[in-house]
């Protein structure tokens, strides 16, 4: 083999290696689901991954919950009659219930639990005055709703039954505890807390005991969610200079960055296939929903 043949072979090999190296990136370009660019937040999959529910800033005065059918990407309001802001939706695994934050008045937020089957609404009410509940999520057996509520200078995670009659405090720490999410087997809850100084991700038993810290970074790690098989956790971090999406194993190891963009990526939720995430990405100053692959 001549020198030039060897060089040609080397070049061809290099090109192939380069293509292989970039192939996953090229093959897994994010899929844009919406194009209106309005501010969006907290998309969640429901109905076995065939639908999304998310909040959109319909106008500067109103967040409204929308439902998107992934098959044709048609979008319609979840509750057409809503006249005040509704956001941070959560859907029960069977799709029957939807919980969300509902604005009741000035600086007053409840968690509403909608039974779509009977079209009834139950609310976990805040105390009078400025107060609110946020970040609802369902237990996997659809028996309880977890949420965050601030009182006595701290913000704790609570749970209640679907009738909103037996609120139970699950955390009792200093700082802000927020964004609870149950493991698929219902045994554990992942959440963020500032109890050690800044927002980090923690894992605790479903009764609130034995909290363990999973992340250690001077910048925030928030909005954790278990993968459908319970082996991984997706979250939002600032560790690389702006808001990006990361995944890690449920014990905090094997950290991998999912998004790489100078603009904001936020609000991840797992598709039921466990291979994709829906995220809200700001691109060109517009906020849209994207499907991204998990590396």
């Amino acid at each position: 083999m001549s020198f030039f043949d060897r060089k040609r072979q080397y070049l061809v090999g290099s090109v192939i290696l380069l293509l292989l190296g970039t192939w996953p990136c090229c093959a897994e370009e994010p899929v844009r689901l919406t194009t209106d660019g309005r501010l969006k937040a907290t998309p969640v999959f429901t109905q076995g991954g065939t639908e999304l529910v998310f909040a959109v800033l319909e106008n500067p005065k109103l967040f409204r919950l929308m439902t998107m059918r992934l098959a044709d990407r048609s979008v319609e309001p979840l509750r057409q009659a809503a006249t005040t802001a509704e956001f941070e939706p959560a859907c029960s695994r069977d799709g029957r219930y939807c919980a969300f934050v509902r604005q009741r008045g000035a600086l007053s937020l409840s968690v509403a639990i909608l039974d779509k089957q009977s079209d009834t609404l139950v609310e976990v009410l805040p105390p009078p005055g400025f107060a609110g509940l946020r970040s609802p999520t369902f237990s996997p057996d659809n028996s309880r709703v977890l949420y965050s509520f601030a009182d006595e200078n701290r913000q704790q995670i609570f749970s209640t039954n679907l009738q909103a009659t037996d609120p139970q405090k699950l955390t009792d720490s200093v700082g802000i505890n927020n964004w609870p999410n149950c493991s698929p087997d219902g045994k554990e809850i992942v959440f963020s807390s500032s109890r050690d100084g800044n927002f980090e991700i923690y894992l605790m038993q479903c009764d609130g005991s034995n909290a363990q810290r999973l992340t250690h970074n001077p910048l925030q790690d928030i909005r954790p969610r278990f993968s459908p098989d319970g082996k991984q956790i997706v979250f939002v971090g600032h560790r690389d200079g702006n808001s990006e999406i990361y995944v890690m194993d449920r014990d905090g190891t094997n950290l991998a960055r999912v998004t790489h963009h100078p603009e904001r990526d936020d609000y991840p939720d797992w598709h039921t296939d466990g291979k994709r995430l829906v995220v809200v990405s700001e691109r060109g100053g517009r906020h849209d929903l994207y499907l991204v692959s998990v590396p």
Binding site: K61, T83, L107, S108, L109, F130, A131, A150
Partner: peptide
Amino acid sequence: FNPGYEIGWDTHIY
């Protein structure tokens, strides 16, 4: 959080 108004900086909650 005030029905009918834009979101301002008066963050007595959250």
